[in-house]
Design a protein around this nucleic acid. Structure first.
Lengths: 220, 220
DNA sequence: ACCTGAACACCGTTCAAGT
DNA sequence: ACCTGAACACCGTTCAAGT
C-alpha cells in the first residue's frame, strides 16, 4: 500500500495529473493493472489517498512552526507553508481539501488554521468564513500553478519566464486605449513571482481579518 | 460553429465537464465525431471556446453595471456578478481565466476589473496584485462548486443540504478535544450558503485593499 | 490475502475518402 | 469548404481465475 501511494506521488511529481494512470502505475510497481484495485476502489480514491499521503508532511511542517503571540502572524506562516508545498507540487492544488472526510490530514490542517481564529475576537460564523477565505486565497492563487503547463515547459524546452513573456508580448500589442489596465501592469506581469503574488493576496485578507477582529486581547 | 459551442455549453450545463465528449456532442449535432475537428483543433480548444462563449454574457453583465464614485464598491459588484455566473455554471470555475489569449472575453473582464484599480491610489504592482487577489478569491471560493458533485446530487436523489449534513454529522463525531475549531463551526458549515461565504472572503480582501489605497482622492 | 490476463466500454485524435 | 466511417492508441473498471 505504502509503495502504491509513493509511486503514485512520484508519477504526479514527475509529469502531473495526466501521468497518473493505472497502467503506468502498475508498470512501475512491476505488476498488473488490476492489482491496484485491491488497494483502492477507484481512481478518485487513489488521488485522494495520494494527496493525503503528501499532506501528512505538509501538516507536520505546519504543526512544527513556532507559535507567536499574534494569531494573524501564525495564520500567515501556516498559509505560506501550505502554499510553498503546492508550489513544489502543483498538482496538489486541485485535490487537497476536496474531500475532507477521506483526507484526514487536510481536515487536521483545516483544524490547525481554524484554531488560530479561536484566539481572535470573532463569532463562529466569522471564524468559519475567515478560514474559508484563507484557504480560498491559497487555492485561488495556486490554481494557476496547477494548470498543466504547456508541454514545452514540462519538456524544459521553454521556461516559465519565456512562457510569461509570450503573454506579455501579446498584451503589449493590444490597443492601449482599449486596455489601459493591461498596459499598466504588463511589466509587472512579465516575469512575476507567484509567491509574491500570493503573499500580497494573503496580506489583503489578513489585513481585513485583523480589522474585523478588533484590538488584540492583550490591549483590552 | 455557433451551434457547436451552444450544444457544448448545453452539455456542460446539464451534466458538468465529464459529459462533454466529442461523441456526445456529435450525436447532439446529428453528425460524425470527426466533424467537430473542423471547428476546433482539440478538446482543450473546445473547452476554451465554450468558456469564452458564455463569458461573453458575463462580460456584458459586468459592463452593464452602474458605476458609482467608489471603485471598491464597483469591484465588489463586478466580482459578485462573476461569482453568480459561476454558481449558475459551476464548470466555469475550472476554465475561465486559464488562457487569456484564447479567451478574449476573460481578458476583457480582467481589464474591466483592473480599470477600477486605476481609480485607486496604488502603484502598478499593487494594482496587478489587487486584481489577482480578487480573481483569486472568486476562483478559490468557486472551486468547491466546480468539484463534481457526487452522482447522487446530480441525480437529485440527495440535495446539497443533505450532502453538507453528512459531512457535518461526521465532523460532530470527532473528538472535541482534538478538533475544537471544527466543533466551533460545524453548525455554521451545516447548510451554509456559498454566496455568503464568498461575500465574506471578498469583503476581507476589499477591506485590505481600501486600507492599502488610503483615503479616496475626493478627501485629499 | 493478494495478484493476474484478458476483456469491456469508453475516450481523444487521425486520416483517407467523400460531397 | 465541410463532413464521414473506420481505425488507432489510449483510458478506468470488471471478472473469472490463479496462488
Amino acid at each position: 500500500m505504502e509503495s502504491v501511494l509513493s509511486e503514485a506521488v512520484a508519477l504526479l511529481d514527475e509529469a502531473g495529473a495526466p501521468a497518473l494512470t493505472f497502467r503506468a502505475l502498475a508498470q512501475r510497481l512491476g505488476g498488473g493493472v488490476a492489482s491496484i484495485y485491491w488497494y483502492v476502489a477507484s481512481k478518485d480514491e487513489l488521488l485522494d489517498q495520494a494527496t493525503d499521503h503528501v499532506m501528512g508532511a505538509v501538516l507536520a511542517d505546519v504543526e512544527g512552526l513556532a507559535r507567536t503571540d499574534d494569531p494573524i502572524d501564525d495564520l500567515r506562516e501556516m498559509a505560506v507553508t501550505l502554499f510553498d508545498a503546492i508550489v513544489a507540487r502543483p498538482w496538489l492544488a486541485a485535490y487537497f481539501m476536496r474531500n475532507t472526510t477521506a483526507q484526514s490530514n487536510s481536515l487536521r490542517l483545516y483544524e490547525r488554521l481554524g484554531e488560530q481564529t479561536l484566539r481572535l475576537d470573532l463569532d463562529a460564523r466569522q471564524r468559519f468564513h475567515a478560514v474559508s477565505a484563507i484557504v480560498g486565497v491559497v487555492v485561488g492563487s495556486a490554481i494557476d500553478l496547477g494548470q498543466e503547463p504547456p508541454q514545452e515547459v514540462l519538456d524544459g524546452a521553454v521556461d516559465r519566464d519565456e512562457f510569461l513573456g509570450r503573454y506579455a508580448r501579446a498584451w503589449r500589442e493590444l490597443d492601449p486605449e482599449d486596455f489601459p489596465f493591461v498596459h499598466e501592469i504588463v511589466d509587472e506581469f512579465d516575469g512575476h513571482d507567484d509567491v509574491d503574488q500570493f503573499r500580497s493576496a494573503l496580506e489583503l485578507t489578513l489585513t481585513g481579518l485583523r480589522l474585523q477582529a478588533g484590538p488584540p486581547p492583550s490591549s483590552r
